[in-house]
């Protein structure tokens, strides 16, 4: 049993390219070259509407990134706390964390978005984008919690015992010994969640947040070029996720340095 074999599969995240897959004929390269070519050729061949769509959506891309980065950062914090809570021997903390995970997993994301958006709106008036980030991170925090829990559990208990025997307390053991190792196991599923979250931010276009999809819809409803607009929207999402998945797999490879002989 080696550590490389420990795989946590949670959620329906994007496929991460294999870091060892250096060939030019990998699925990743074909997808990337195809996507980039289409994004260049279509606007050149038919500037109206393809080029016009492209000039219309960039501020949407920015919004999508903002929502994604803010949500994933918050979700990581919530996830770490939830994961630790789910592993806690304190019954009350454990119960709260488990309850949170159960509830979030049982309600569709879109329903959660609506609920938090409108329920929150009745209590405090926050900007739409803030409500969107809160809703997304509330949902993804639960999934992250399961990822953290599995990652922490995958670390051999001998590591904890060695740390305790040196005089570290539980918290120090978690911070210096367990989490730095768990991070490597956690990174691939976190990467998947990150990409899944980026795609799911398209749901916030239903709230009044002007992300990529919403900008596309605005353009399409003005110009009636639905097919062309959504083609470009899909290609933009695809390009972003392809690049991200490559970055994540490279990072994963770098983090595994201490496992290489």
């Amino acid at each position: 049993m080696s550590d490389q074999e420990k795989i946590i599969e949670i959620g329906d995240g994007a496929a991460i390219p294999d870091p060892k897959d250096k060939g030019l004929i990998s699925a990743w390269w074909i997808a990337l070259i195809g996507t980039v070519s289409l994004l260049i050729i279509l606007p050149l061949v038919k500037p109206d509407p393809y080029a016009r769509v492209l000039s219309f959506v960039p501020d949407g891309i920015l919004v999508t990134f903002k929502v994604t980065i803010a949500s994933i950062s918050l979700a990581l914090v919530i996830g770490l706390l939830t994961g630790l809570g789910r592993l806690s021997k304190n019954r009350f903390i454990n119960l709260i964390a488990s309850l949170y995970v159960e509830v979030v997993r049982g309600v569709p994301l879109l329903v959660q978005l609506f609920y938090i958006y409108f329920a929150l709106g009745r209590i405090v008036r926050v900007p739409d984008i803030v409500a969107a980030v809160i809703a997304m991170s509330f949902c993804y925090g639960a999934y992250m919690g399961e990822v953290f829990r599995a990652g922490i559990k995958s670390i051999d208990y001998g590591q904890t015992e060695a740390s305790l025997s040196l005089g570290f307390n539980r918290r120090q053991t978690m911070a210096y010994v367990v989490l730095p190792q768990a991070w490597r196991t956690i990174l691939p599923p976190v990467g998947n969640e990150f990409i899944a979250l980026l795609k799911d931010t398209s749901l916030v276009s239903i709230l009044a947040v002007a992300d990529i999809l919403r900008r596309g819809r605005e353009y399409a409803s003005e110009s009636f070029n639905y097919f062309e607009t959504y083609t470009m929207i899909a290609l933009i999402y695809l390009l972003i996720t392809l690049i991200l998945s490559k970055l994540i797999s490279n990072m994963e490879h770098r983090l595994s340095h201490y496992e290489r002989r």
Binding site: G158, E161, A162, G167, P180, R184, E259
Partner: peptide, 28 residues
Amino acid sequence: NRIRMELGMVFQSFNLFKHKTVLENLTL
């Protein structure tokens, strides 16, 4: 934790910190 500092322990399965170099294992 203070008492454990006075008690060095060596395990059957070594349990070296895998993410640390040999030197870092000793200095942590």
